[in-house]
Design a protein around this nucleic acid. Structure first.
Lengths: 339, 339
DNA sequence: CCTGACTGCTGAACCGGTTCAGCATCCCCT
DNA sequence: AGGGGATGCTGAACCGGTTCAGCAGTCAGG
């Protein structure tokens, strides 16, 4: 039980607190000999400076926060989040920052009051936000609170220069997907997207529509909410429609694609023979499904890592930068194979 | 930007810091009138006391830590972790505690040095540990460090009374699974377990063996490491064995069960006709697989929540308690259906 | 009328670090 | 020999809360 403090160390060594502090932090003002003596003693006692005392005097918490604002069920089943989190944590650990995690289910209000609280208590030095919304209230709020932030994975078209973030060009990804379906001979496709309030969904929708137009493809758009059952229901509705049926479907995430597969099976239809499928997120689900589902692989772990690094840079040096993420790569699987 | 401090509040109200502090914390020593005035002003300015100053003077961090010690790939694909995390976070939020998360991949050494650091810096008030090992060094270490902890999901047989934790009776779960396979007419089964260094795996293995013996079943044990490919490889090995083949397999987690299904498909065998399968963890993977896999549902979210509540109680009142978790329920699916 | 308990409040110490201004030394240069 | 600039160190203030001892004022009981 190390009840040791900096004063204790100083006494043992017969020097002042100040010198110990300088020595520990690699600051000038102490001789190399003294520095060594301090570091050695600290190691020997395995003593670490109290994080709260440090936070208080430096006015820096040494932690960044992240709010996962979603249905716990969705969070639990979406491998995407965990992969992203793992990337983020790795980068933060290297920058010697702790990750403070909060999960809220009652939507944006809870998320925002979490930020207010964190800012007021100075509990985190910055936050990472994602899933950019139309008229997103968060950047304004965070600016007002003076809480630095990085906006992760904002659509390229909506990328604002006034704050740090990673951007994704969904138009390119849309083109990749649509081109593939066109190659495979599809002429009428459905796009089952997530909620339109997400800016990235809008960009995807526009991307799909424009690229499809170029090829002379018809597109049916359906808005849903990323849940497994929504994917299922969307497919049922699509296939019951009076118009000519689509021959391929693009899903906004892997869960909906899985729901779609279930629906197809129920309806006695086969994939890809009757309907081909593509998921906008790749995950183990897509690999394991039968048929395995063609999906856009976007490496959420690496992306999370980059976002975290941007945040560290912002906190360290105040550098505001925007980093475009690499385009997704379409992993071809059976769900879009041609007979 | 609230640069307000407790001194500021005190000045505005013309009273002392001490009174403001008492008022805020619901402590006696101030009149109801004064308390109201303080609380109202705090609300109006939306001011919150600095967490680091508070942590320093109370010597309490207001956060608990958790180290996820596993291959990032495994973490990202195991829905189990996320569900548990969601439950834990919910309980902590209610107890007004923050969750500090760290992910390490280089195994136990990193995990232990994280605890040393956290304890030294007094960055967390307690930690949650899980995946109890044989001769687990962590309880001893944490005791030495004076860091309170809760051991989540320790096997009932190994439950020590000296510290708080949740326990799981794997023998009962093993019986549930074995009974089911016996009912379905299997006489020779395989048990593909996780690493034996986990105490719960040992308890499961013993549980399966004993129950099987009672029914006169033969059991083939295989030790692996929870990875998808390990499940796959185990199945290939099992089915190539010269002895009589098993007709049912029990997998230590959902990923291995998925790997097993893949292997079966490759070998041109059918589930459940040629080999039946059961997973010890339920998850979306089991539901979505084809055939859907019979699995033991254990509600990791609820269990995480209970563990977090134990930790809160321990920190609050020092209460050491052991809570047994409900037995798992076998969700019957096609992978063990009879013709 | 005096005592003692209780209420409401305050000044000051304290938590454990960081950081600034200031003070010796010592060395180099002219 | 003396001025100027590093170098190495220290005392004290400060970060923003909590908490303790103490001090008036009030009020009930003997």
């Amino acid at each position: 039980m190390s009840k040791e403090t900096i004063t204790g160390l100083a006494k043992r060594l017969g020097i002042s607190k100040a010198s110990v502090s300088y020595a520990l932090n690699g600051q000038p003002g102490v001789s190399e000999l003294t520095r060594r003596r301090v570091l050695d003693l600290a190691e020997e006692l395995d003593w670490y400076p109290s994080s709260s005392a440090r936070a208080l005097s430096r006015s820096r918490a040494g932690a960044v926060g992240m709010v996962l604002s979603a249905d716990p069920l969705l969070i639990g089943t979406e491998p995407h989040y965990m992969a992203m989190l793992a990337g983020i944590e790795t980068a933060l650990a290297e920058g010697d920052m702790a990750l403070m995690l909060r999960m809220v289910d009652k939507g944006p209000v809870q998320e925002q009051s979490t930020y207010e609280r964190w800012a007021g208590e100075r509990k985190v030095d910055g936050v990472l936000i994602f899933d950019h919304l139309h008229d997103d209230p968060r950047p304004t709020l965070l600016d007002r609170l003076g809480l630095p932030f990085v906006l992760h994975s904002a659509p390229a078209s909506a990328a604002p220069a006034s704050y740090s973030g990673t951007t994704t060009d969904h138009a390119v990804d849309a083109a990749t997907i649509v081109d593939h379906l066109h190659d495979r001979g599809h002429r009428r496709i459905a796009h089952v997207s997530g909620p339109h309030r997400f800016v990235h969904e809008e960009e995807r929708i526009r991307g799909v529509r424009e690229r499809a137009a170029r090829h002379g493809l018809e597109v049916v758009q359906v808005e849903t909410d990323y849940a497994l059952t929504s994917g299922h229901d969307a497919v049922v509705t699509l296939l019951r429609a009076p118009e000519a049926p689509v021959t391929a479907m693009v899903f906004g995430n892997d869960l909906m694609a899985m729901g779609g597969l279930l629906a197809l099976r129920e309806l006695g239809l086969r994939c890809p023979d009757d309907v081909a499928m593509v998921s906008w997120d790749d995950s183990l689900h897509c690999r394991l499904a039968s048929p395995a589902v063609t999906a856009l692989s976007r490496n959420p772990g690496m992306q999370g890592r980059v976002a975290a690094e941007l945040l560290l840079a912002l906190l360290d040096t105040g550098t505001i930068q925007t980093k475009p993420m690499p385009h997704g790569e379409l992993v071809l699987r059976s769900s879009t194979a041609t007979g």
